[in-house]
């Protein structure tokens, strides 16, 4: 460990204990998965993760998550805008409820959202009467992932909008630029890093999401099967090799996303300061 520049006590104790805890809880379990998949030969590994059904699942996962994250980006920005700039009745309640998808168990979200699109609910019946099929299309996956991801966008954009340098915008308006120009040239560029960060977080969370999606998706191989469900299916089938191979592939995706998010956040922090 490097030099400790602090006069405070407890460095070795706290760091030592935390490191031990992280090792046992996070590192060793993660390595157990990676080591297990390392038993596969490279060609075996490659043939598992490039299997058509697996690739199709990755395609479904990535495309649904991407669409959901874009929808979240759009509505998340609007919600953050509305919550920071307008006063209206019930604003505090709505502000608190934005985090509901984060606080509510995914299984509850899953059964509730899938229930909404069945013939039991008015909405579901309305959609069926008008031949709008959500329940058995990937739209259902997108809906679940949109629900899961919305707080991430709102909560990263909101503080930036709040601490937005008003003078800058005022200056721009006083210089004669109209609102649209101000928005495009001043507001959007400043908010964009936060928006992208929120988008990336929603994306990362959505990519791995399981609970809410399996209740609502139709889980058809090649069409509407997401990667986490495929892992569980392999696991249930006693196909540990397959599960570990796809699991590590997912792990790599997660790490890359985490890296991107951290870089984005780093830049965001610098900009804010």
């Amino acid at each position: 460990m490097g030099k400790k520049t602090s006069r405070l006590p407890g460095f070795h104790l706290t760091l030592g204990l935390s490191l031990t805890y992280i090792s046992f809880l996070v590192l060793i379990p993660l390595f157990s998965l990676i080591l297990y998949s390392a038993r596969l030969s490279p060609t075996e590994y490659w043939s598992i993760i490039t299997n058509d059904r697996v690739l199709a699942a990755f395609r479904v996962s990535f495309s649904s998550t991407l669409i959901a994250a874009v929808v979240d980006g759009f509505f998340g920005f609007i919600l953050a805008w509305v919550l920071t700039r307008y006063a209206f009745f019930g604003k505090r309640v709505i502000d608190a409820l934005i985090d509901l998808p984060f606080a509510i168990p995914t299984a509850v979200a899953g059964i509730t959202l899938s229930y909404l699109f069945t013939a039991n609910s008015k909405l579901g019946r309305f959609l069926m009467d008008h031949d709008i099929n959500i329940a058995t299309t990937n739209a259902s996956i997108v809906i679940a992932l949109t629900f899961i991801g919305i707080p991430f966008v709102v909560r990263t954009v909101q503080p930036v909008l709040q601490e937005f340098d008003k003078e800058l915008e005022e200056a721009s308006i006083s210089l004669g630029a109209n609102f649209y120009k101000t928005f495009l040239k001043v507001i959007l560029p400043s908010v964009l890093p936060a928006l992208i960060t929120g988008f990336a977080m929603a994306f990362a969370r959505g990519l791995g999401e399981y609970g809410s999606v399996i209740f609502i998706a139709s889980n058809m191989p090649y069409e509407s099967e997401i990667v986490p469900r495929l892992i569980v299916q392999k696991l249930l089938n006693f196909d540990y090799k397959g599960a570990s191979a796809i699991g590590t592939a997912m792990l790599v995706c997660a790490f890359i996303l985490l890296l991107i998010i951290n870089l984005l956040q780093h830049r965001l922090q610098r900009r804010l300061n």
Partner: peptide, 12 residues
């Protein structure tokens, strides 16, 4: 490392 559990799928 602290953020890893956030990023990985619950299934993992």
């Amino acid at each position: 490392l602290v953020e890893v559990p956030f990023a990985v799928s619950p299934v993992i």
